[in-house]
Structures are given as C-alpha cells and as structure tokens.
Design a binder for these strands. Structure first.
Length: 279
DNA sequence: ATGCCTATTGCGAATAGA
C-alpha cells in the first residue's frame, strides 16, 4: 500500500495537480489537509474518475481535511476524544470544533488526516489551542496504540512544528520570536512521538529536505523551508514501511501548494500489489 | 526595504496561513 499526506491549500484550486500526482505515483491512500471547502464543494468527480473514494470533513473556507482511497473507507470519525475547539475571542470548554481531523480505516490500517492548529504567534490564544490540541492527540495516540497494538495506526498531516533545528531553513522562523520552533511546541511534538507513534520518514530521506516553503520572498528558490508535514506510525505501521519520500518537485510549476506530498510504501500482510505470494 | 504570496468570500478588504 502506498500512502501519503499532502496539505493541498485548497483542493478546488489544486485538484488537477493532486489527482495527476496520485495516479503518477500509484498512490492508494492520500490524507489531505486545508481542502478549504465544504463536502458539497469538493471536486469529487476527478477523484472518482481516477478510482478513488472519499471521506471529507469541511465546515467552511478554513481548514478542512479529507482522505481519498482506492480501497473502501470505513469507520470514519471527524474528531478524536477530547479534541479542543476554538473561537477567536472566547474561552472555555465547549467551543466549536474546527475541521482539522478525519480518521478512517482502509485495508485494516487506521489512518488520520490531521491539520494541527498553526498557533499564529507567541502569546496568542491560538498557540494555547495548538498545545491543547497536541495534548489531546497525544492521549488518543497512547490509548489507541495501547488498546490495539497489532493494528497499523498512523497520524498523517501538517503538524505545524519543525521539531529539530535541521527542519528549519526559513530565516524568519526564529526560536524565541515565532511559532513552530518554540521549546513548548517541540516538546508537544516529542511527547506525541513518545506516545507510541514515530516519524517513519526521517531516516529514509536526506537531512534538510523540507515539506513547506512560504510563497513569499523566494523561499522556494532559496530553499528556505520547513519540515512540518509528517507520517507518524505505530510500531505495527512502522515495521511495514519499506520506503519513504518527500516530493519536492510538487512545489515547482504553476499554482503549487506551499506544501509538498510525503509518501510511504507499506508491505502489509495482505498486500497483493507488488509481491507475488510464494509457497 | 513601508512591501511581501496565496486563497476565500464576494466584489474589496479582511482573515488566515506559518
């Protein structure tokens, strides 16, 4: 199974690019973030014509997540337990939930497409929201990997943290001045990894390969990006991974997303794609 | 450097992204 994540930054603007890439790369499952539309606005025909079914969670022009899959999608959820909500200017326990998470089961693999809150700036309430979101996600990951250790489980998406200094090549992203690299955000990311899910891509790609470059200030031509998009897999998921790649070329050309896709190849027990069963 | 990129809503300026 070839499974990928991509912050598409509006699926309506990017649908041709996204489906072309999926077909070209023989992708079986794609977790998308920032679709920026409601389900009824999603360009589903292009996916269906290419052989994919969809699970979509979008409430308005902000955020929005989806999963496309060649194999049937079951057990769709649009939030994890205790996922925080957010409403600017408000505080409290019962704020509306944003469209930042969708979970589904495909071929026995439990996958989530996640768009972690940005944080906006140091000291902004949105940063507290981001850290609360991480804490609830960490509790969920620990519970899920403990309850079903045999089931491959993956958290995929835009985590909006550059965990290591080598993941930050953007000179405007500075420890002590901006989000994404603060000790608190990095600690939240590492706590998530310590809850039973690990980065299955890092060891398989070159150091200093980013997944995001700001549209401004020639960030991409200067290669001043961030590595903030990840595939975090449980032990059962991680041991099935045979290869991984970051598709930097998808930042080139006309009307790219500011993020590029991240892909892993899984050798599952019932995988009949590429390896004949030998008796 | 007084400007910077893109998308959405809705038709312009505001919000958001990171």
């Amino acid at each position: 199974m070839r499974i990928a994540t991509w912050n598409v930054n509006s699926i309506r603007t990017r649908v041709g690019r996204v489906v072309d890439w999926m077909v070209r790369e023989d992708v079986d499952v794609l977790a998308m973030q920032e679709i920026k539309c409601k389900p009824e606005q999603f360009p589903h025909e292009a996916f269906e014509e290419a052989g994919y079914e969809l699970a979509i969670h979008g409430l308005n022009q902000w955020n929005g997540v989806a999963i496309a899959s060649r194999a049937p999608i079951t057990e769709v959820e649009t939030e994890f337990p205790n996922m925080p909500g957010f409403l600017k200017g408000h505080d409290g326990p019962d704020l509306p939930k944003e469209a930042r998470a969708i979970g589904a089961t495909v071929d026995g693999v439990r996958v989530w497409s996640l768009y972690v809150p940005n944080g906006r700036s140091l000291g902004d309430p949105h940063l507290h929201y981001k850290l609360d979101w991480y804490a609830a996600l960490t509790d969920y990951a620990r519970a899920e990997t403990t309850a079903h250790p045999e089931r491959p489980f993956a958290l995929m998406g835009d985590f909006n943290v550059a965990p290591l200094d080598i993941d930050n090549g953007d000179p405007t992203v500075v420890v002590g001045q901006t989000t994404h690299v603060s000790p608190e955000e990095r600690a939240a990311f590492f706590a998530l990894e310590n809850a039973g899910v690990t980065d299955v891509v890092r060891a398989r790609v070159p150091e200093g390969l980013y997944t995001y470059w700001d549209y401004k200030q020639l960030r991409f031509p200067r290669n001043e990006g961030l590595r903030i998009d990840f595939i975090l897999g449980s032990a059962a998921f991680a041991e099935a991974v045979t290869s991984a790649s970051i598709h930097r070329d998808e930042r080139k050309g006309d009307a790219p997303s500011d993020h590029v896709p991240v892909l892993v190849d899984l050798a599952l027990g019932d995988d009949d794609d590429d390896r004949p069963m030998i008796f």
